[in-house]
Design a protein around this nucleic acid. Sequence first.
RNA 1: GGCCCCAUCGUCUAACGGUUAGGACACCACUCUUUCAAGGUGGUGGCGGGGGUUCAACUCCCCCUGGGGCUACCA
Length: 480
Amino acid sequence: MNKSKVRVRFAPSPTGYLHLGGARTALYNWLFARNQGGVFILRIEDTDRSRLVPDSVQDIIQSLEWLGIPPDEGPYFQSERREVYAQKAHELVERGAAYPCFCTPQRLERVREERRKAGLKIGYDRACRNLSPDEVKAKMQGGQAYVIRLRVPLSGEIGFRDFLRGKIAYDARELEDIVLLKSDGWPTYHLANVVDDHDQGITHIMRADEWIPSVPYHILIYEAFGWEPPVFIHLPVILSPDGKGKMSKRSGAFSIRDVRREGYLPEAIVNYLALLGWSPGDDREIMSLTEMAEAFSLQRLSVRGAVFSYEKLLWMNGEYMRAMPDKRLAELAMPFFKEKGYNDPQTILKIIPLFKDRAKTLRELADISGYFFAEPDSYDPDGVKKHFLRPGVPELLRELAGRLAGIDGWNPQSIEHALRELADERGIPARDLIHPARLALSGMTFGPGLFEMMAALGKAKCLLRLRRAAEWIEKAEGFK
RNA sequence: GGCCCCAUCGUCUAACGGUUAGGACACCACUCUUUCAAGGUGGUGGCGGGGGUUCAACUCCCCCUGGGGCUACCA
């Protein structure tokens, strides 16, 4: 038996930006291709012209690129193969596996409604299924619009094997004569998808399990053409963190571009997504794409719907940030600093070591380090109460500034020495000096170690801010 | 409603007839410490229910319940 090379595809429709769910599907296909030495194909299923979102194709391609899982082949566009599908649809008619239907949308809607009320399973009454060749010819010559429908057997069982779930079978009486070719000449998903999977030599279809109910139709199409169906692998859907249910556009930042803007790293996203429905079989969690590709196997895919958790993604993102070299982290964080108006690569690089353990996203990194680029515009109110509004604090801060002004060298050690010396002389714990100083310098009650922070901030700014805070306190309400 | 899929800590998962049911996130302690993180140590917490099969069920089968998906000339 000659084993054909694995060819898998990710086949989104360009109706929106790439979602985390879609990204995971793409990722699994990519991992499987890498693992098998196969080919990962991108196919854009753009047959519904009414739902196209202009820049979504671009977004999908860029997002895959950014995640590090670009296609080996494609993108192929279904819109460029319109005639192929039309021709295939008519071939099915000739083979007796499909038929033209002249019913108007209005009629279909009416019939569907009636039949639903009557408790019938199938919405279409198959009115055109048995038109005589003469009737068909007459209607066509009369220029009547028509669709082409699949001629589904009226009884029997249509089953297939899902790689993860085993046999799935449908009673033909539950199935409808679905539309293959629309009256505007464009194919529906069912036709185009099957034709392309065949023409592009797809060996494994790995996609979300919401497609399971459409597989029996596809089986019928494969059979009608005499084609061998590929292996079906239906992935569980990703559930939204809040109300459960399929993850949707609303209810948070769910597109790749959104999480990118939030300051997540592609390595973390891809790693987290991979673990949402797959496990390597051991206790490893932090894994690179290469490691995951090596460990990937279809057998270890899960069939349970997984709830997406931002908490764990956040943790993982923090892991990747901490493990990243400062220089690279600085580069990646640059846009987030720029966005806040801080365009100072030198300073950014300098403060990365102070903050990388404290931020879980690039955005957070920029958010909590603003006082390195601008004077603190306010002091934390709780901090003020706790550390500022106490007798002697202004004087203490001024004295500290004075001492620091005179020290030799400006480094964490020399700063610490001066501060502790002052505390000793006054007979107070160092923290009674440290906390007010931190608040004076950063406006915050938390942050990096004070001495490292001061060293990075620079002498001039430190002295200025200490004195400024002393003044501020004296004028503050509640200070006596 | 009909059809289909799924069911282990709150969440993601390991287990593939015999384990004190393991790991991770989150949470709680303790530790480190100038704060906040990060780190270290420890802990709380789970097999949805009922029937079978078997010497033995988290593991296999059935039913119930619960969750999810599909039900368009959308994908």
